Amino acid sequence: MARYHIVKELLTTEKNFVKILNVIVNEFMKPLGTPGQRGGQLLTNENVKSIFGNIPDILRVHTDIMNGLEERINNWESNTCIGDILLGQSEELLRVYPPYINYFEVTKEALSSCDRQFPRFHAFLKCNESKPECGRQTLSELLITPVQRIPRIILLLQGTI
């Protein structure tokens, strides 16, 4: 029964993480990458790429993990395992995380620089960060969640042994 509760907690945290990634993509990245905004595009495509990197790829991988975990929880039996779900995504995790984590300082600097340089972008950030879906977090705080996710998964899984 303890394994079930740990996997349930893993699923809950995975759902929260996917929700945060969706907020990043839908409330910040997509609107910034949309041409034809009144007054012109807020940031160049290069700026958008520098700030958001491969967040959509990370979102896709974690959506797959979340769906796999949800299916296992819905069909839980005493001998249910989840290792194959994570192992099945291991190549993708190894592909998407190193570039994001290795360039996270560049991401933070690009965000900070654009925030200082472009008043319309600054206003866009303040407006979007005040939305309830952001949970009173700044874009910078939201963007660090992928850096923190893998260590949190490891800590949760250590409880399944």
Rank of each mutant, 00 (worst) to 15 (best):
I73G: 04
K126I: 00
T160D: 09
F17G: 06
T145N: 11
K19S: 14
C127W: 12
N79G: 03
E92G: 05
Q37M: 14
G53E: 06
I6E: 14
M66Y: 08
R116Y: 04
D64F: 12
T13C: 10
N102D: 01
M66Q: 12
A2L: 12
E92I: 01
I65L: 02
L125H: 07
H5E: 10
P99N: 01
T160A: 00
I82Y: 08
F17E: 05
F118S: 14
L142F: 06
T80W: 08
S78T: 13
N67R: 13
N16A: 13
R116H: 09
Q117P: 02
C134H: 07
P119T: 01
C114Q: 13
C127P: 00
I24D: 04
H5S: 11
N22L: 11
L86D: 04
P31F: 01
I73R: 06
T44S: 09
E133Q: 12
T12K: 15
V23D: 10
E71G: 02
S50A: 15
N22F: 11
M29S: 03
N67F: 03
T80C: 02
R136W: 06
R60P: 01
E129C: 01
L11F: 12
I82V: 13
F52A: 10
P56F: 04
K19W: 14
L69Y: 07
N67T: 05
C81P: 04
T145S: 13
P119V: 00
C81Q: 15
